[in-house]
Design a protein around this nucleic acid. Structure first.
Length: 301
DNA sequence: AATGTTTCCTGGGTGC
DNA sequence: TGCACCCAGGAAACAT
């Protein structure tokens, strides 16, 4: 269930460890974790072994590590993926799928473990293409290089996210007005605005006072702006929390320990009082997913 | 073209 | 205590 804030914590956590590090060995324990790797572009491990990683970049929930070959290691955590930095020789993590052996000029040897219970996540080597607008492909912290204006092929269709300084509000609002489906479906569409999953969608809709089935095109411009602001606020708040509990040595993004659940107002809180009006929160089925909302604060109109 | 549905996955939790 | 279920959902593939 990692969404943008959790992925950003991973990005920030791995950035110092991987930037400038050389990959000395790759172990793939679960080939299904390479589902998004296109074998036509060459085999996975040899494109890493002996090569240097240059940084850590994120757009929405996609994370990629540019390689000195001009390509990138693309990481998606899916539902249950974790990136864990470990001392060489340490005991294997549960559901360990892939392990990279790294050698950093300053920090020495390190293992980068990719663990993933449900195998919805993946690692892949991908080609890079220029961003259409010449702007950075994603958020890279302090890192910069020739790869800054590039984006992996499989991420090119993903929209910029709401904490990206180059996010285009006007274009997003215009697209919103053309969409007839329910607003939650649009929020979860990564080609409109990226980084939002089921949890923060529910949180943002609550903050904006909107029902998940409200047709996107029925929102006024003011409501659209309010919704985008709500999403941004929810993401930033989670990010601030994650930043404070972050351990630089072990990047742990899981549904349990590493998940920023303390600040959730409605998600998973059905049957408890709405923090705004006191009405009992409800949980409903929507798109084969669960939606959590206050039936009073979030009415269809 | 845009929208809706199915599929991939597994282990922790639940109920009998 | 054991065991068969059920459930979570990100995103692409597929169907309408």
């Amino acid at each position: 269930m990692p969404e943008l804030p959790e992925v950003e914590v991973v990005r920030a956590g791995v950035e110092p460890a991987v930037t400038g590090a050389r990959v000395t060995a790759v172990e793939v324990f679960e080939p299904r974790s390479l589902r998004r790797h296109d074998p036509l572009t060459g085999p996975f491990a040899p494109q890493l072994e002996g090569h240097r990683l240059l940084g850590a970049v994120r757009r929405g929930k996609f994370l990629w590590l540019p390689i000195d070959t001009g390509r990138a290691l693309v990481i998606h955590l899916g539902m249950s993926g974790q990136v864990l930095l470990r001392e060489p020789g340490s005991e294997a993590d549960r559901q360990l799928r892939i392990r990279l052996h790294l050698e950093h000029p300053d920090h020495g040897e390190l293992w980068l473990n990719f663990a993933d219970q449900r195998i919805f996540g993946s690692m892949a080597i991908d080609r890079m293409q220029p961003t259409g607008d010449g702007l950075p492909g994603g958020y890279a912290g302090a890192g910069t290089g020739a790869w800054s204006g590039l984006i992996p092929d499989q991420v090119a269709h993903i929209a910029r996210d709401l904490i990206d300084p180059d996010f285009g509000t006007d274009a997003a609002l215009a697209a919103l007005a053309r969409r007839g489906s329910g607003i939650k479906r649009v929020l979860l569409d990564q080609t409109w605005v990226s980084g939002i999953g089921n949890i923060y969608a529910d949180e943002a809709l609550f903050a904006a006072g909107l029902h998940y089935e409200q047709p996107a095109s029925s929102l006024s411009r003011t409501e659209g702006i309010r919704l985008l602001d709500a999403v941004r606020t929810v993401l930033m708040r989670a990010l601030a929390e994650g930043g404070t509990s972050f351990d630089a040595q072990y990047v742990n993004v899981n549904g349990q320990s590493g998940y920023f659940s303390h600040s959730l107002a409605v998600y998973g809180r059905q049957g408890t009082a709405c923090p705004r009006c006191g009405t009992l929160l409800v949980r409903e089925q929507f798109m084969n997913r669960s939606s959590h909302l206050c039936p009073v604060c979030q009415r269809l109109h």
